[in-house]
Design a binder for these strands. Structure first.
Lengths: 232, 232
DNA sequence: GACAACACGAACAAAAACGCGCAATCACGA
DNA sequence: TCGTGATTGCGCGTTTTTGTTCGTGTTGTC
């Protein structure tokens, strides 16, 4: 029948906890910490990875925060370094205990990843990956918008999403953009995205627009607004 | 059914207390502490584990955290094999091109993981992890419910979520449950969860209830419905 | 592109833990 | 006092876990 006693021993449980809290731990470190041979740790890691509880690497293991891995591995992220830097910089502008919208886009996801040091934020987002990234934070209050998912980037768009976004007012709106025209006009490809961005801008006291240099060379056709709309 | 005299001797009671306070205690330590042979401790541990009062391991025992206290990460690994098997089995009942609700719970997540071979499903869910799992599928149409995220398990609950769920009718409702009473009554801990489950049941042509054997030994207090509510 | 250092898996051996059967002990009432 | 049944301790063969060795594979550097 089904085995009643699950085959996970205390050490393996500790390993999961350790890896999840540290991000990356080497086999050597774990062997030392638990006072067992490296080979034993390897066996544990192998077993846990087989169960899908963490990810194996040469020399150690990392947690299996599903979405982050999907984000990095399966999706092409251009200018990762620049986006991380932008996200980090933007995050430093957000004080603890603030409320904020986070819109769709890979740059806003980088921003969300940089919120690790913040506390007690209240976040409203229509970005599935952002929601996943911060979903484990017990001190955050995270609201996700309703609606249909767009597979390619985890965006939640449409009338229902706008309705959700429209029922909140926040101190910050963090949005990305597809393109910026020479005159400062903000541009996007998709009407739904544009409407969501507008809703966020309308309901935020301040707006942080995250964009790297590539946005200046693109010229989508939809108009989100002018830079003037972002002024405080 | 409930046996009137369960024989738990003082030593066994002490063992439970000790394990609960220490986290992990080796059989050797306990044998020394109670001044009995290791064999006797083994018997005690075996008996107590059988009663579900603690968890047995090679060389010792750990406490059996109560359901509410089990963190999501740990819950995820409970009965992983059984949950995968259940999920796989349930997935085989779903034809391509169906529409379905997927509720919160680790078993429903296992189910979602088993949908890899399906095509063109339309899914409505209030489970962030489920949404993430299937978000990359370009042939699926995925709708996520609105509302506040519960960090411990990625559940989206509340009035907004119910409103989203209530605006769809599907062929299948896939739900988990916290406990099943002997008379078939479905039980849950949280009022919000119960309301979501009821909404899903109401709006589904057929309901698939995913539960492993551990659900029969738990007795939460909220009533979701009877097994009769699930009949086709 | 080659080499050194490190990490890995497989196989084997040692150690620890386990279960079972049986005998000794204890509790308790006839 | 004796018998009965439950509990405990011990011996021993079996299973599980852990450590070690060694040939192979991977990584990083020059």
């Amino acid at each position: 029948m089904s085995n009643p006693t699950i085959r996970i021993n205390p050490r393996q449980e500790q390993i999961i906890r350790l890896v999840r809290s540290q991000g990356y731990v080497s086999n050597e470190d774990m062997a030392q910490q638990f006072d067992v041979a490296v080979q034993t740790i390897r066996r544990d890691i192998g077993f846990l990875a087989e169960q899908g509880l963490l990810t194996r690497h040469h020399g150690g293991a990392t947690p299996n925060s599903t979405i982050e891995n999907i984000a990095y591995n399966e999706r092409q992220i251009l200018n990762l370094k620049a986006k991380d830097a932008i996200g980090h910089c933007a995050a430093s502008l957000i004080p603890d205990r603030s409320s904020l919208f986070i819109n769709i886009g890979t740059t806003t996801e980088a921003f969300a990843r940089s919120l690790g040091g913040h506390r007690d934020l209240r976040v409203v987002t229509n970005n599935l990956h952002v929601a996943s990234l911060i979903s484990g934070r017990p001190d955050f209050r995270t609201v996700i918008a309703a609606g249909e998912l767009r597979p390619k980037d985890g965006a939640i768009l449409g009338a229902a999403a706008i309705e959700t976004l429209d029922s909140f007012r926040t101190e910050f709106g963090v949005i990305g953009i597809s393109g910026i025209a020479d005159d400062g006009t903000l541009l996007d490809f998709d009407l739904n995205e544009i409407q969501c961005a507008r809703t966020i801008i309308r309901n935020s006291r301040r707006v942080l627009l995250l964009a790297d240099h590539t946005k200046f060379s693109r010229q989508p056709m939809g108009r989100v607004g002018g830079l003037a709309d972002l002024m405080i």
